[in-house]
Design a protein around this nucleic acid. Structure first.
Lengths: 213, 213
DNA sequence: ACCTGAACACCGTTCAAGT
DNA sequence: ACCTGAACACCGTTCAAGT
């Protein structure tokens, strides 16, 4: 074949297909050859569009973050903005949980991830938070959201009553968790988000005080 | 050589060496052949002690969790116990951050991880939390702690002033974050832990009420 | 500019052969 | 019981050769 008159590949198509493989079979299942097969080309062709596999994973991660709604900062009270952003952030990550370990390494040079960090930090500083606190809040929210998407808590428990019986006196019903995966993880996230924002709002009143309107 | 009269390997020695390689060079650097070389044997020898590489990673993960102090449950007020456990949990994970993505997949069949889940859940239920809430609290604490250890927030920002200048108006000082990695991550964790436990304590008073002594 | 086949130095795992 | 060499089907990446 050599070079076709119309390019067979594009960065966008590569990223979309990589995302589909990672979603369906996990990070470990994504190899260059496998991805190439899925795209109808040979492995080395991909190196015309990305320098390394790492660059492909970065592009997948950034495309996931592109789904996060950061328009809330500046438009709503910081408590409301933080809550809506955290929900949107979690929704984006739980739609693609297998890429979370890669994405949680930080924004690096990924433009969408940097734009998100900029919006969050800027929103908090504009709301009156001291810069150091704004950094901490951005960090701790990422801890909580990334942790919640990294692996389901409920699915982490094997569905085998024999495993828990006798040995772990309080876990006698843990084998049922997997059946309620979604509501357990959702309930835990909701409770943690409430507690976090409640705790931060109380601190805010001490640190920043009520601002005159 | 064939079989030596004194076994060259033991599960313990394999786990210790695997942990050292993962700590020093990351999860991706740990291959069976590399680990075998480090242990002075050939690759296939390891399969006399572990059935798969996955089992080795499970053993590394469980050894990390073994360092977490779960003796606090039942000995202290649940707020104090939760706080001390979370700190100890984070200390254990941040000592071995590269294994966190594996470990955060849940306890599976790892005995130490199951014992920890049992202690946390039991401690909360004994303190009067309804079972469903106790599950949620165990989950959300894992989200926060695992997220905080998964990747440094501060190190996630590249040390390159040019990257942020102009493009990200609020991140003009982000290139300095890496220099303060430890205090940024520690400050964010401390703030989040305070907010979480404060928020949960307020809920506790609504849900459980004050118990007579 | 963009795709290919061949090649390099790697993987995890199996298995028969040794003691 | 426990270590070995050879082998299998894989990896990510490079590169000269094609159009």
């Amino acid at each position: 074949m050599a070079r076709p008159r119309q390019a067979l590949l594009s960065r966008q198509r590569i990223v979309a297909t990589a995302t589909a493989v990672i979603d369906a079979e996990g990070l470990a299942a994504l190899s260059i050859r496998r991805l190439a097969t899925e795209l109808g080309v040979q492995g080395p062709s991909l190196y015309n569009h990305f320098a390394t596999k790492e660059e492909i994973l970065d592009a997948v991660a950034d495309a996931v973050i592109e789904q996060v709604d950061i328009s809330v900062f500046g438009r709503f009270d910081w408590r409301v903005a933080l809550r809506r952003w955290a929900r949107s952030y979690r929704d984006a990550l739980t739609a693609h949980p297998n890429i979370v370990p890669h994405l949680a390494q930080g924004p690096g040079r990924r433009p969408t991830a940097l734009a998100m960090a900029d919006a969050v930090y800027g929103g908090l500083v504009d709301a009156g938070w001291p810069p150091a606190r704004a950094t901490h809040i951005g960090a701790l929210m990422r801890y909580f959201v990334a942790g919640s998407a990294l692996g389901s808590f409920a699915r982490g428990f094997v569905d085998d009553p024999q495993l828990y019986a006798d040995r772990y006196p309080h876990l006698t019903r843990a084998h049922l968790l997997a059946d309620h995966q979604k509501s357990v993880d959702e309930g835990a996230f909701a409770l943690g988000l409430d507690a976090l924002i409640d705790g931060l709002a109380r601190l805010y009143e001490d640190v920043v005080g009520e601002l005159p309107d």
